[in-house]
Design a protein around this nucleic acid. Structure first.
Lengths: 244, 244
DNA sequence: CCGTATTTGTCCGTATGTATG
DNA sequence: ACATACATACGGACAAATACG
């Protein structure tokens, strides 16, 4: 429950590259903190604290908040504050549906245009996942899984598809990170599906590849449901106690 | 070529509702100006001029710029300024491909869940388009077309799909507005396709509805190409000389 | 190539609204 | 219900970078 409020001690002075504005740097940094789980859903982000911690003023921080709110990672409540977005199971459902449609497109396209060295690259990732799955190492598996799917979309060469895909997957991860923790049993199943996807793409059959991707996403949705059924309906609550 | 630079005379003091921040209002206003064509692709937006014209300070304007850059309507260049985004034909292609995938999903879902009164509402819109097409009235046809497709997506009840769809269609419109002007001949064709879509959805056959939407988008892409073929390859050029 | 004007990037102070006791 | 504390919303000023003559 890192609330980013106290502890303005450490100043992670971020390196500022010539080409990026402070706002951009702050934006990337916050996004990273969310992706890595250092900030989790529901956490409150205090303008001044974030500014202090990153060694900048509040201006760039506000702008970064605005941008991240637009991408769906943050939620801004007027005169109240900004929070790491909470994704309800209903929203997660919706996202899964959209993602399935996008991934079908990915499969169809890739079956047509994939190149041998790209297939090889995919198989390398899948091998890594297989190893992680064998060791039940969720922490190793999770980022590989993200990279696998992101790589697939990259290989389509459609940059608009890529940004669209990344946006919704980012939001989905806000939900999945919570839900995924407990279930190690599915890693092997999921890996098998990934292999199937690569094979389907390699076969050059657009319909088959499309179906493989769709089924994988649908299965992921099912896994989410089961995981959700197990977990308590803990939902937001967000007890706010303020230290000074 | 409204560059929003001179003429800080008229102060369109925008009404500020309690619940919306100034930034949000500015954001909506700029988006409106782009949608209505009062700002067109490539125009430069000057922070101070926009602030002056809307009667606010530069802070909210900068934040609105950030948000709109994130949605794809604006492009920010560090230390140079923000511009209404130019969409190349290549990007338009990419967007059409993504849109086709989303619209297929829309068709499939709607065929399953559409209600009679919703079908009626769609037919009302199509009737309006038919009248506009008969009069070759592009200015009347264009917004109805947008509304038709937006309504379709709304009826799916999937709010994530809706925001995703709107985002990419907004970008597409940046391109289409230029390309669409000349070709009035296609209005009748397009209307026929819209009727077909409604009928397919009404039939309750997901595959048929999905196909109808897909074909419509594909046809739209073709129309874009033909329109582009006519116009000069004016492309951006924008010779950028970068000194260090 | 240099100096000036303009625009953007950043920072900080004050006002306003919200939560808390 | 009122007062107080605190966070955000907004505006304004300074610094830095770019464009232009």
């Amino acid at each position: 429950m890192n609330s980013f409020q106290g502890n303005p001690t450490q100043r992670t002075t971020i390196q500022l590259l010539q080409s990026h504005s402070l706002t951009t740097l702050v934006q990337q940094e916050i996004a990273r903190l969310i992706e890595t789980g250092e900030l989790s859903a529901g956490d409150k982000l205090n303008e001044w604290s974030v500014a202090e911690r990153l060694g900048v003023s509040r201006g760039p921080v506000r702008e970064a908040f605005r941008a991240l709110a637009e991408t769906g990672l943050l939620r801004m409540e007027k005169n109240r504050g900004v929070f790491v977005r909470q994704v309800s199971i209903k929203e997660a459902e919706e996202i899964y549906e959209v993602r399935a449609a996008l991934d079908q497109l990915v499969g169809r396209r890739l079956a047509e245009i994939i190149r041998p060295e790209q297939l090889k690259e995919l198989r390398v990732i899948v091998n890594g996942m297989e190893k992680a799955a064998a060791k039940q190492d969720v922490d190793a598996y999770y980022p590989l899984n993200l990279r696998f799917h992101d790589t697939l979309v990259q290989f389509t060469g459609n940059s608009k598809l890529l940004t669209t895909y990344r946006r919704i997957v980012n939001e989905l991860n806000l939900y999945r990170r919570d839900a995924l923790a407990g279930e190690k049993g599915n890693l092997l199943v999921s890996t098998r599906e990934h292999k199937k996807i690569v094979d389907a793409i390699a076969s050059g059959d657009p319909d088959r590849a499309s179906r493989a991707l769709h089924d994988h996403v649908a299965a992921g949705r099912e896994r989410m449901h089961r995981a959700h059924g197990i977990r308590e309906p803990v939902q937001i609550t967000r007890a706010r106690k303020k230290s000074t």
